[in-house]
Simulated assay, not measured.
Amino acid sequence: MSEVSRKLKIGIVQMTSNEVIEENVRLAEKLIRDAAAKGADFILTPEMTTLLDFGTKQVMEKVVPEDQDDSWPRFAALAKELGVWLMIGSIAIRNGDKAANRCFVFSPDGKKQATYDKIHMFDVDIPGDKAYRESNAYQAGEEAVLVKAPWCKVGLSICYDLRFPHLYRSLAQAGAEILTVPSAFTYVTGKAHWHTLLKARAIENGAFVIAPAQVGDHRNGRKTYGHSLVVSPWGEVLADLKGEQGTEVIEIDLEEVSSARKRIASLTHDKKIVIKG
């Protein structure tokens, strides 16, 4: 990617993580290398890249504070070796009595450029599935995060955040042209809502939405939807990894953001709503 180009190659990683951290790290490293070999400038992995949670007790037995975790430094070194921007969708990091569901972004020099702790906890009862209580093990984050990359500003989010459009609105109005949504969406909710929600976030903010995802049957009995997506600012699905582990690299042109926002300038048209009654 040239310095003046508004084009870049996005590499999305789709994987089936389990309860063994080292296995997941090695798989992620393999897939990241594959995406880099295909020419990706910016590579993104799913939520819970290194440990797909399988119960509060088990999670807390495995997680350590950030300064003791050895997975993210390996990813930092890999970003430097490959000369790419790298987003690890999330790593479970001990944060006091609970864990943080934390996203990491590394630049091609191997430096940690940003972290983001998932704000919205997945505490739901899904008909036809089961109850999930993410807040039993994880502490919610409190701050939205914007990353200044060479090509544009990138807004960070994780999975269940997707259902809270004001987060993306705030990121877009702060200058984000790419919105990232690394996820481990359940199969039931993914089949019903995944494509629709991601397309909506892209359209209403005139931004590219990049959503690397977990996929398939996990050893803890969980089933995730997959379908890692890249969606254009006009709502077009540019890439869909469907139901298999792997990678895909696709070139995007950030001039499409300017074009979409000029055609429908809704980001500048917000009104304060007064409700009567």
Rank of each mutant, 00 (worst) to 15 (best):
V215D: 06
Q113I: 11
D240V: 09
K57M: 06
Q58W: 10
A92M: 14
I250C: 00
K272I: 08
G89V: 01
E244R: 13
N136C: 01
M15H: 05
T49A: 12
L51I: 13
D125Y: 06
G55P: 11
I264R: 11
R222N: 10
A36R: 05
F104A: 01
C103F: 00
P165C: 04
L229T: 01
P212L: 07
T50M: 04
R219A: 14
A35Y: 01
V63E: 03
V209L: 13
D125W: 10
V25E: 03
G83H: 03
N220D: 10
A176E: 09
Q139W: 00
D253Q: 07
W194Y: 15
D97C: 02
H166Y: 09
G128H: 10
T196N: 13
F106P: 03
Q14T: 13
S266L: 13
F75P: 01
A200N: 14
P165W: 11
D161A: 01
G206L: 09
Y160V: 09
V124K: 15
K153E: 13
K223D: 00
I178Y: 02
K276M: 12
V124N: 05
S183M: 08
E204H: 05
G226S: 10
V145F: 00
P65G: 01
G89M: 00
R133H: 15
L31A: 00
E244S: 13
L52A: 07
K80N: 07
Y187F: 10
E19T: 11
G235F: 05
G206N: 08
A77T: 04
P165F: 14
K191T: 06
L198K: 03
P182H: 08
R219W: 11
A37T: 05
K80Y: 04
T224I: 02
Q113V: 15
D41R: 01
P65V: 03
T247K: 05
L167F: 15
D41M: 08
R26T: 08
A213M: 06
V145D: 05
L167G: 03
A200D: 11
Q139C: 00
R6T: 14
V181R: 03
H269M: 14
L78T: 00
A192D: 15
A239I: 10
A76S: 13
D109G: 12
A114C: 05
G83M: 08
E204T: 13
I32A: 01
R169I: 15
E134W: 06
F54C: 14
I119C: 03
K276A: 10
K62H: 07
G206W: 04
V257F: 08
G190L: 06
V230E: 06
E251D: 12
A36G: 07
D69V: 03
S107P: 00
E204Y: 04
T268S: 14
A172H: 06
D270R: 14
G89D: 02
A239G: 00
K272V: 08
H120T: 02
K271W: 09
A176N: 11
E61A: 15
K271Q: 06
S183Q: 13
G155A: 07
L78F: 07
T49I: 13
A37S: 15
K223R: 10
A40T: 12
L198D: 02
P127C: 09
E255D: 14
K153Q: 12
I273L: 14
G96V: 03
R219P: 06
H218W: 01
L254Q: 10
I43C: 04
V209I: 15
A77H: 08
Q245P: 09
W85P: 07
F104R: 02
E81F: 08
K223H: 12
D123F: 10
